[in-house]
Nucleic acid binder design. Structure first.
Length: 465
RNA sequence: GGCGGGUUGGCGGAGAGGUUACGCAGCGGAUUGCAAAUCCGUGAAGACCGGUUCGAUUCCGGUACCCGCCUCCA
């Protein structure tokens, strides 16, 4: 049995994973609030956890892992979007979920076993809130229900903060009806035009944190193995989830292991709209950055380190993947991935280390293929980008393949003449033009070989015919 | 102000208390009409200052700088 070691944010230490039930290893990943396209930062945990799930299924069996990722479809950002556009909330959230699926599919991330929508679990949230009030951990006031942080001694433990320190830090919203400035909302009133549900505290809607507590309980139980998300969620979101779940179910452990990925940067800076370096996964795909390339770059930095997205990295990744795809074309994958890949992943999900193993497998394409696929790379469904430039030269109804064949003959003829005349100028100029068009030119004693490269420019190629 | 993370060779990026990471780029050679590709070989590192140790880039402490969270955020 492979020993999987993961760094638990709760203990700040790397431990061996010991599932509560090896027959059903349970994992929850905080999913998106569905009001807009997923940006690149949203994709990082999805891809990282996709690899973890693959590893868990490999170790414990495909049917012995339950992976849950929620959709937050009730949120003030969604309400704001609805108010801006005049569209029904359900239209917006349905559409956004569709985008999300398409974009994450393009990155080769498998769908979770369950993708609960918050609005489908309102009764469970209300039950949990009632439970918290009854047990003295929450109080209702002015149509709100608030969680009383002073009632939970471990509040702040996950993020290493104390309630007193945070209040000293000051920047907390202080509503007059809060018993303590750090108390957070479980339920809040809705006005007529806001989404809402009837509850014991009046018409209203849930606070953000309660949904994950209610849905993880419903789908995974009061104790489960792994809870994952971006490090920015550590506080307050995950801290509040712990408070809710542990107070509602003192007998449960809630999540045993907390996995947090570090943030993503772009060209060394925080991705932000004001810096003009904000972009979504779809933006990249539309710019013809293959999903497989995005995945490769996301996996090439360890998840617990800040990851810097740069155009240069994407280019290098594309070149590498191109080379590997050429190398493994028509190759049957080996039965098992290289054990070093498994070992690297088992060691706190060292995806960068696992990729480095792939580089050593050039002499064994079958093993390379099997190993890369374990990371979700070189899979057939992500390979369209390799073929896309080999389709058709628009201006003339001729395939790139035929064009290459014609040019190969032309080059061969020119070269033979040049060999006699010793004047290579025409050969060299055609070679330069081909290179410029993204074609690799190989000439040897046996002849000329032209190979379409990853950055083939079909228009330029067409011009040479 | 409070909490947390980071700093590795030209660039990207890992592991390991003592032995080559790896990739890209570079350099030398083979090869080539010249190249490309390929093959062979090769230089180059661990922010700074201390401590522990026979020995630290790897452990501990401090300094500097960068980043994140504390407000919606993966």
């Amino acid at each position: 049995m492979v020993d999987i070691r993961l760094t638990n944010t709760k203990t700040r230490t790397k431990h061996s994973l010991v599932p509560i039930d090896p027959q059903n290893v349970r994992l929850y990943l905080c999913g998106p609030t569905v009001y807009d396209r997923a940006h690149l930062g949203n994709a990082r945990p999805v891809v990282v956890i996709d690899v973890l799930v693959q590893l868990l299924r490999h170790v414990y069996g495909a049917d012995h892992v339950t992976y849950v990722r929620n959709f937050t479809d009730v949120d003030d950002k969604i309400n704001a979007r609805a108010a801006e556009t005049g569209r029904p909330i359900r239209d917006i959230t349905d559409e956004t979920i569709g985008w999300y699926h398409a974009d994450m599919d393009a990155l080769g991330a498998a769908r979770p076993d369950h993708e609960p929508r918050a609005t489908d679990y309102i009764p469970q949230m209300i039950t949990m809130i009632e439970n918290l009030i009854d047990s003295g951990h929450a109080y209702a006031v002015e149509g709100h229900v608030l969680f009383e942080v002073r009632s939970f001694a471990d509040y702040g433990k996950l993020s290493g903060r104390s309630v007193d320190d945070m209040i000293a830090g000051a920047r907390v919203e202080v509503a007059p009806f809060k018993r303590d400035p750090m108390d957070f909302v479980l339920w809040k009133p809705s006005s007529g035009d806001q989404p809402g549900w009837d509850s014991p505290w009046g018409y209203g809607r849930p606070g953000w944190h309660i949904e994950c507590s209610a849905m993880s309980e419903e789908l995974l139980g009061t104790s489960f193995d792994i809870h994952a998300g971006g490090i920015d969620l550590q506080f307050p979101h995950h801290e509040n989830e712990i408070a809710q779940s542990c107070c509602a179910h003192p007998q449960g452990e809630f999540a045993r292991v907390w996995l947090h990925n570090e943030m993503l940067q772009v060209e060394g800076k925080k991705m932000s709209k004001s810096l003009g370096n904000f972009f979504t996964v779809r933006d990249l795909l539309d710019k013809r950055v293959p999903g497989e390339v995005i995945r490769f770059v996301l996996l090439s930095t360890h998840y617990r380190k800040p990851m810097d997205w740069t155009a240069e990295k994407a280019q290098t990744a594309e070149d590498t993947l191109w080379e590997w795809r050429v190398l493994t074309k028509d190759v049957e994958p080996a039965a098992e991935p290289d054990p070093r890949v498994i070992e690297a992943l088992a060691d706190d999900l060292n995806t960068a280390g696992a990729i480095s193993v792939l580089y050593t497998l050039k002499d064994d394409p079958a093993k390379l293929l099997a190993s890369a696929r374990f990371l979700g790379l070189l899979r057939p469904e992500l390979g369209d980008w390799v073929a896309r430039d080999l389709a058709v030269i628009d201006s003339m109804a001729i395939s790139v393949k035929d064009g290459i064949a014609t040019l190969t003959q032309k080059m061969t003829d020119l070269r033979e003449k040049a060999m006699e005349s010793k004047d290579f100028s025409t050969v060299d100029s055609l070679k330069a033009a081909l290179t410029e068009a993204g074609v690799e030119v190989r000439m040897s004693k046996t002849g000329v070989e032209l190979i379409a490269g990853p950055r083939l420019d079909a228009a330029k190629l067409g011009a040479l015919l």
